[in-house]
Amino acid sequence: MYATLNTQLIDGTYLITINRPDKMNALNQQVMADLALAVDEVYSRDDVKSAIITGAGEKAFVAGADISEFLQLTPAEGADLARRGQVIFQRIENCVKPIVAAVNGFALGGGCELAMACHFRVASDKAKFGQPEVNLGLIPGYGGTQRLTQLVGKGKAIELMLTADMLPATDALSWGLVNHVVAPDQLLAFTQSLLQKIHAKAPLAVARVLQSANAALDKETDGYAFEMKSFGECFGTKDLQEGAQAFLEKRPAKFTGN
C-alpha cells in the first residue's frame, strides 16, 4: 500500500515501520507523504486504537533527512519544506489516540524530531539521539528546537543542538527524552504491552488526557481552563458511568468509547 512504509494492525495497534534500511530510513518526500497518509489512517480507522512508529532493520529508527534533496532548495522552498514537515508532526502530536515511537537505532535530525512528535518514546539500548543539523549549516526544522527544549530543558537542548553530539539511550532516559530503555529484541513487545494497558482504559478519557497535556504547552490555550472543560465533559459519557460502577462493584470496567 505504501512505497516506503510497512504497516500492520496488531491487537488494535497500528505498527508503522519506515522501510528504507539501505538509506538508514532517511526521511525523503515520499516517506513524509506516506507517513502523512498512515497517520490519517490512525485518525480515521475505528479498528485502530493506538500506533507505534519504528524503523526497519537494526541500525536506524530514522537517521535524518535525505540531504540530497536539500542541495537545490531556495530559502523559500526550505521554509516550505519545514512547514510541511511541521504539519505532519503536529498531526502526530495532536492525535487523540496514543502514538508511540519505538526507537531501535539512530534517531538523528528529522528522526529525532519524529520521535519527539510522538506522545512518548521507548528506546532500544542501542538507540542514539541527536540534532546534528549545525554540521550541515542548518537547524532543526520540523519542530525539534521547540520539542527538545520542552522535553529536556533549555540548557541541555541547546548543548545537544550546538555540539551535534549523539545521546546514548541511557542518557536519553536520564534526561527525560525517553520513557523506557529495553533490550532490542524486547522493544516492540514492550511498547505493545504499554499500549495494551492503555487500550483497557476509557478511550474518551485517554483522548482528553492527550489533548489536555498538549494544551499545557500551547501558548494560545489556557491549559487549566481546557482541563476543567474536559473534566466536566467526561461526566456526560457512558464510560464514566461504567467506570464508576465497575469501581464500586470491584470488577474490570468494559469501556465502549461513548
Rank of each mutant, 00 (worst) to 15 (best):
V87G: 11
I198V: 10
Q211I: 13
C234R: 15
L15E: 05
A253Y: 00
K250V: 03
M228G: 09
K229W: 10
I53M: 03
R91D: 08
F247Y: 12
K254W: 03
K154T: 09
K156I: 09
A115G: 08
G143E: 03
R251I: 02
M166Q: 13
Y14A: 04
G144Y: 04
W175T: 07
L187P: 11
L5Y: 10
N94I: 03
F89M: 12
Q146R: 09
N28G: 10
I18V: 14
M166I: 05
K197R: 14
R251T: 04
G78Q: 11
F231V: 06
E220R: 12
K23T: 14
T17I: 13
S68L: 09
L188S: 00
N25L: 00
K49Q: 13
G109C: 05
R83D: 14
K250E: 08
L217K: 10
L217Y: 14
N258A: 12
A215E: 10
M161V: 07
A244G: 11
V100L: 09
Q245K: 15
N258E: 15
G243I: 00
T149Y: 05
D239E: 03
D80S: 15
M161K: 04
Q186K: 15
A60S: 15
V209E: 06
F120W: 13
N135C: 05
T17M: 06
A200I: 00
T256R: 02
M1Q: 14
L167S: 02
L5H: 08
F120T: 15
I158N: 11
G176E: 04
W175V: 06
E220N: 15
A56E: 08
G105V: 02
A205C: 11
L187G: 05
P184Q: 10
A3M: 05
V62M: 15
G57M: 07
G144A: 04
S230K: 12
G143L: 08
P168A: 07
F89A: 12
Y43K: 14
L210Y: 03
V134W: 00
F70N: 05
F120E: 07
P203H: 01
S230W: 09
P252A: 03
L151T: 12
D22Q: 06
Y43T: 08
A183G: 15
V122M: 00
Q30S: 14
F120K: 06
L73S: 10
A63I: 05
P21E: 01
F106I: 14
L5W: 03
A183Y: 11
V42W: 10
G257F: 00
E69I: 08
L173F: 04
I67R: 13
A101Y: 00
A202C: 02
N179C: 09
A216E: 15
